[in-house]
């Protein structure tokens, strides 16, 4: 069972790597930031899968923090853009 979960986590990691292409290529800053935001969601998925595969319940808490705090980066990003636009 844990093999299957690891394969699923591996696939999610590959989607992050695919998204990295967008982060590195851009072209607009917003494109990069949105890709990063999606990684937060993929990260939550990977953590929940690993929590089952490794039988470690604390990983669900890590996933919780990811979900809660990933938005901070976007808020800071919007503030930076607003400051630059002024």
């Amino acid at each position: 069972m844990s093999e299957v979960l690891f394969i699923a986590a591996l696939l999610l990691l590959l989607t992050i790597l695919a998204g990295l292409w967008r982060v590195l290529r851009g072209p607009a800053p917003a494109d990069r930031m949105l890709a990063v935001q999606l990684f937060g969601t993929s990260g939550v998925g990977i953590l929940l899968l690993l929590a089952e595969a490794m039988d470690e319940r604390a990983l669900r808490d890590v996933a919780l923090l990811f979900a809660l705090l990933a938005v901070l980066g976007v808020v800071a990003f919007v503030r930076w853009r607003a400051g630059a636009a002024q």
Binding site: G40, L50, E56, L59, L65, L69, A70
Partner: peptide, 22 residues
């Protein structure tokens, strides 16, 4: 944070999730 998870360091992963991601 994912690497800390793979190294059985959930405490560090929690801190990294808050610090690194936020």
């Amino acid at each position: 944070a994912l690497s800390w998870v793979r190294l059985d360091a959930p405490d560090v992963a929690l801190a990294e999730a808050a610090v690194g991601a936020g």
